[in-house]
Design a protein around this nucleic acid. Sequence first.
DNA 1: CGACACTTTGAAGACGATCAACGCCGGTGG
DNA 2: CCACCGGCGTTGATCGTCTTCAAAGTGTCG
Lengths: 264, 264
Amino acid sequence: MPEKIFPDIIQKLKIFSGVPQEEYLPLLRKGELGYLGRGQHLFRQGDEIRHFFIVCSGLMQLYSETPEGREITVDITTPGHSINKAEILMPMSKVHRVSAKALEDAVTLKFPANWLKEVARHPNISLNILSTISQYAHMVEIESEHKSTMSAAQQVGCFLQRLCVMHGFHPSGFTLPYNKALIASRLGMEPETFSRALAKLRSHGIEVRDMQVRFTNMDEIGDYICGQCSITGQCPTHSRLESLPPACGTRPDKLERRLMSVND
Amino acid sequence: MPEKIFPDIIQKLKIFSGVPQEEYLPLLRKGELGYLGRGQHLFRQGDEIRHFFIVCSGLMQLYSETPEGREITVDITTPGHSINKAEILMPMSKVHRVSAKALEDAVTLKFPANWLKEVARHPNISLNILSTISQYAHMVEIESEHKSTMSAAQQVGCFLQRLCVMHGFHPSGFTLPYNKALIASRLGMEPETFSRALAKLRSHGIEVRDMQVRFTNMDEIGDYICGQCSITGQCPTHSRLESLPPACGTRPDKLERRLMSVND
DNA sequence: CGACACTTTGAAGACGATCAACGCCGGTGG
DNA sequence: CCACCGGCGTTGATCGTCTTCAAAGTGTCG
């Protein structure tokens, strides 16, 4: 009876949003609760894909390792999110491309892979899954873009703001939900670079001391995060942070090309 | 009657695979043919999302522009692929995040956005859409990872091999389907960097002269492209290219950490 | 032939990764 | 209670890679 143990989580599952409880509770009950200690793995890169998971409590880190031992954090999931949708629904992948590790004691609901394929035949649920995968793809695309266009400081600034929005924190003061080394790895940079980025951001209205984050210049933080960056409204990052020395200066010829392309 | 004009394309549409023709042809006929000259836009960054497209002929470039006029190529679609699935199925995005431009004269089938939402209620079609979006997300994720772990030369090598597989080219000699500047932009690097990367690759069994690509060392090119890189089989890139000077040397402490983590 | 787009090559500079060292803290054990 | 240790974060110095700027080579097309 997972809905008895984690009522708040279970009621807000995105993949079941809009589906009546009496319809999806029986489906959910087919899941098996699993308990993980901090540092334990849910699965590892290279393991066969057998299960679909919903995280009920605890943070999970999805990461991949290069042959040389470099570790890249692909995603960090919070309770209520699911793991493995995309891999299971992609016909030709049989093996996990990433490892999943508990960053703290965690509880998961585990389903056989086929369960998801069955459930996905349900039109409403299928649309929900489509929507979350699309959203994820969107986010990855944007971050990838940022990686080639923004300096480390800009990326960090953008990330902190997204963090604030997505977790519903208060911009004038919140605590980082995980440590800095992890965030750095999540952003594909070294801890040293991350640290130096924070230093640069202080003069731009983003203050981080220990684990405490504070955005000043609140007037610029409006509806939060633009289409460029993630969701809706105006983007404080792209306006505020552009005064940071950009990763690379603008090449005038590109600017010209852009202006010329207006009238084609 | 699009199926009369582009029979080969229409019969191989991924979103309809496994669905009987008599079922999807009526749906397809609701589409409207559109003709684009080279350089014309299908839509632009910031436009409202109104349509779903299937490319029937011609290459389309999806790209986004930063405020400074830098142009990032997000994707290049070949005939038979669709454009806009993810954006339409993501509830909160109302506006295109990227522009779509014809790289050559092109023909598209155009559907109202709602058409896709309707069609997606069809269980088979919905699974097909899920699968293609998952695959796309997967690819973006991998390339993003590559961006932080591989040198420019390694990325280019990896890309060329994927190109060869995905387009079904013969590894011992094929022609680049689009120019080098475009590939560079696709990989998020400058044309100069791309050019220098090709020079480095020559001593590693990948020869590119003008638009002609030739892989030597064929014995290493097996089933092509590993789970790390994209699809199935063995990955020539990760084995062959690791003798290239890596982007950054391996840090022994990380290697140790990795070896230690084997027994937890 | 000359204009133009594309590619290549060289030289300089900027940025991030790396290496090393230090400060800070919480926990452990004497 | 204090000394020691390991994990974490910061800072400084150095180095490699990619970007940038500049210039020259190649090809196509009018």
